[in-house]
Nucleic acid binder design. Structure first.
Lengths: 322, 322
DNA sequence: TTGAAAGCGCTAACAG
DNA sequence: CTGTTAGCGCTTTCAA
């Protein structure tokens, strides 16, 4: 800016005014400044401007499990889109489900002075965020509630209700031997979905076969195979996420078994799966959109008590029928 | 830092040394400083530190078409992962295929003083980047070459070779009435793929039916239907990206038509598609990984002439067989 | 409307 | 090993 000022024969401050589009600048001077900027190839350093002004950096951080996962990339996409509407850019970071890494990423983002943080919690305790929040960083939790007594806006999926509805639908079709496949109950969403399935079964007083530790599609295929080859095979399956659903579809299709299948999460090519299934669908974009909007409301100064919003689910028939 | 210094009874510079882990600090003093930092909840402002030191900001920008697309989210995921290995964070921005928006995003990222830029070009002319490059911002092009005479490292897919191989495979099976479905030839990758298909057909001196303007799966389904219902229906189709492939699969399956199908791009559930197909697969992660590594080589000072690397493709049989 | 001076939070250079 | 001073690039006083 000093160079531009010298080149244009004005003061530093005038250059600053022009660059920031302040109206109180003589048109002639402004033109000279603009010309000098063009000649010298000056570009304003936005980092420096936020320093002195103590104002927003125009960045928000998003901490998710893993960007390659379509669920999270949808969230990131919406967050970036909404952020762009507020003239801010999105820094994404993957926590890989590691609470310690999450913490480090959050600190790093804060040291870069993000205006806000969108967090899909990997850890159960967010007390460590207290100082940052007190320093003015706004936080919104997404998909899972934050823990550790930190009050913050939160947007969740109706995991329990969705799972209950799915299993209710299986029950309504007369199934009584139902098996649920899940990874671990260590994750909030999975715990809720299992609870929902349990609630449905309890309402008809039927037992639920629960297979834990099913971590990926192959595991799911093996679990389905094991159950079908065992005594009293289930007549219906409920898978708690789309990766397990895909594994179950593959195995059921391979065997030509017509057990009923319902799964949490819709997925892109569900309609082309080689057998019928039912999925619990929800609007990921709406969830991410609301969360990001809430974040910017806070950034703009909203002071209301922490709010929690829940996004509903619906059952959808998928797979090809012949 | 001033507050911490006062609280610990040391100078500002000593606090700076402790915070930056410089070894030349008395252990006792360092401890006192650390204690004060804990008490006051001090957190270093990384933005301010890069200002004075004039050094790297530890951020790189990624400009892609649209983060929600699995292809791009894979790229973003790898870029973020590699960046993390270099202690830097990734800012992602979507250009929505708009050259003007791309330009604005690039300028914005530069004004945030990113150390480097990973670009999937939306525009054909990147001469506007010249001043930024001269100012020290490193640029690597990804998936598509940059235009406008800007020499920069580039990583591409072997689009032409992959398409030629796919169509060659159709020809080898005896097909001579082959139709190719594509969106527009305005995009480099699509142009190359069409060229590859043409090359294959020319080698046997057979004509190629080309349907342009097929923008989405539904378009692809309609195009397939139209061709099959027309005179001299094709016995094989080549779709130039996975969205069109999916549309074609759906329509062929719906009709029970056993025309041969080959498509560019593998996709996640291709193995569960309800009919056989062949896809041109390639390693997106490798492409993004190499591009990001090249970027950091530049950031670290590599000065060699601009390099172009091409990632190979392979044909893979997909879909369920019965 | 314009400009001079101070200062944002930090680090480099140089003393001590 | 520790501290002082200047200054990164910009914006905010406040005076002209």
């Amino acid at each position: 800016m000093v160079d531009v000022a010298r080149h244009a024969g004005v003061s530093l401050k005038t250059v600053s005014r022009v660059v920031n589009g302040e109206p109180t600048v003589n048109a002639g001077l402004a033109e000279r400044v603009l010309a000098s900027i063009g000649v010298l190839g000056f570009q304003r350093n936005q980092l420096a401007s936020t320093l002195r002004a103590g104002r927003r950096t125009g960045t928000v951080g998003l901490v998710i499990e893993e960007l390659a996962n379509p669920f999270y990339s949808t969230i990131a996409s919406v967050a970036a889109e909404v952020a762009a509407q507020h003239d801010t850019m999105l820094i994404t970071a993957s926590s890989e489900e590691d609470p310690d890494l999450e913490r480090r990423l959050v600190f790093d983002l804060c040291s870069r002075r993000v205006d806000g943080l969108l967090l899909v919690p990997a850890s159960g305790d967010h007390a460590y965020l207290r100082p940052e929040v007190d320093m003015g960083v706004h936080v919104v939790f997404l998909d899972r509630p934050g823990g550790g007594g930190l009050e913050a806006d939160t947007v969740l999926i109706d995991n329990r209700g969705g799972a209950r509805a799915a299993v209710d639908a299986l029950l309504a079709k007369g199934h009584r031997r139902i098996a649920v496949l899940l990874d671990s109950t260590g994750v909030y969403t999975m715990r809720e979905r299992l609870l929902g399935a349990r609630e449905a079964m309890e309402s008809v007083d039927a037992p639920l076969t629960v297979v834990e530790g099913v971590a990926n599609p192959d595991d799911a295929a093996r679990a389905v195979a094991g159950l079908l080859d065992g005594p009293q095979p289930p007549t219906a399956f409920f898978t708690v996420n789309n990766r397990l659903t895909v594994g179950a579809v593959g195995e059921l299709w391979r065997r030509g078994d017509d057990a009923e299948l319902a799964g949490f999460d819709d997925f892109e090519l569900a309609h082309l799966m080689p057998r019928p299934l039912t999925v619990v669908a929800y609007d990921t974009r709406a969830m991410a959109g609301r969360a990001t909007e809430m974040l910017f409301e806070r950034v703009r100064g909203e002071r209301a008590a922490a709010r929690t919003e829940v996004i509903g689910t619906r059952l959808v028939a998928r797979g090809v029928r012949r």
